[in-house]
Amino acid sequence: MSFNNLDTLYRQVIMDHYKNPRNRGSLSEEALTLEMNNPTCGDRIQLYLIVENDRIKDVKFEGEGCSISLASASMMTQAIKEQKLSDALTMSHYFSKLMLGEDVELTDLDMGDVEALQGVSKFPARIKCATLAWKAMEKAVDQKEN
């Protein structure tokens, strides 16, 4: 597949997640809840996690923002649902590297559609949009563990 076709496919995947977000909504009061925003562009996300036995049993998000921010949140929730906390944090680490334009080899973790966001690394102003949900998840897991 040529670069232009791959770029077009990735854009389509991003727009699909933006227009049809997966795991959008809220969870019960027992959920670990964290709200974060990106004051630079106004993106805001509220993340809900239900963690049982060191595993993310369920995850949902609410928020508003640009297509990159909301698509990334949708992709992240799909990728981390049913994962061990340690694996979710590893995914976040890999995603951060991807956003920095580093080569990332994901051997044993299925991150779903997340790879479609790799082009964001070419636009430094948009990296914070893409990483907002991931940073919220890291912070929520950190609060859970402390």
Rank of each mutant, 00 (worst) to 15 (best):
106 L>F: 09
143 Q>K: 14
104 V>W: 01
11 R>C: 05
18 Y>N: 00
142 D>V: 14
124 P>R: 08
73 A>L: 03
78 Q>C: 08
29 E>C: 05
90 T>V: 11
53 N>P: 04
23 N>H: 03
67 S>K: 06
67 S>V: 07
44 R>Q: 14
91 M>D: 01
39 P>K: 14
10 Y>M: 10
97 K>P: 01
48 Y>I: 10
100 L>S: 12
8 T>F: 07
105 E>L: 14
41 C>E: 06
31 A>T: 07
141 V>D: 00
18 Y>E: 01
53 N>Y: 07
136 A>H: 02
142 D>S: 11
35 E>R: 13
86 S>N: 14
140 A>R: 02
93 H>G: 08
131 T>Y: 05
134 W>V: 02
66 C>Q: 04
115 E>D: 12
38 N>W: 05
18 Y>Q: 02
7 D>C: 08
105 E>K: 15
34 L>M: 10
74 S>R: 02
122 K>D: 15
140 A>D: 02
127 I>E: 05
12 Q>F: 05
65 G>C: 06
41 C>K: 11
135 K>E: 05
107 T>F: 11
85 L>K: 03
110 D>M: 12
112 G>E: 06
65 G>F: 00
139 K>F: 12
113 D>R: 14
110 D>T: 11
97 K>M: 11
91 M>L: 11
137 M>A: 06
102 E>K: 14
114 V>E: 01
138 E>G: 09
113 D>T: 15
66 C>K: 09
143 Q>R: 14
92 S>N: 10
136 A>S: 05
44 R>D: 09
71 A>N: 04
33 T>I: 14
130 A>S: 08
32 L>A: 04
106 L>K: 12
126 R>D: 03
108 D>K: 12
134 W>A: 00
74 S>G: 04
135 K>P: 00
60 K>S: 03
41 C>T: 10
12 Q>N: 13
35 E>T: 13
26 S>K: 15
145 E>Q: 15
63 G>Y: 00
8 T>V: 07
90 T>H: 04
8 T>L: 11
97 K>F: 04
55 R>S: 05
121 S>F: 09
109 L>G: 06
129 C>Y: 01
99 M>L: 15
3 F>A: 15
130 A>R: 03
31 A>H: 10
108 D>M: 10
21 P>A: 03
108 D>Y: 09
69 S>C: 10
141 V>I: 11
111 M>R: 08
8 T>D: 07
91 M>K: 05
116 A>P: 03
136 A>F: 01
21 P>V: 02
63 G>S: 06
40 T>M: 11
127 I>V: 15
12 Q>R: 07
53 N>H: 12
47 L>V: 06
136 A>I: 03
67 S>P: 04
125 A>K: 15
9 L>W: 12
30 E>P: 02
75 M>F: 06
79 A>C: 07
42 G>Q: 10
62 E>W: 08
26 S>N: 11
49 L>Y: 01
83 Q>C: 10
126 R>Q: 07
127 I>Q: 09
143 Q>L: 09
138 E>D: 13
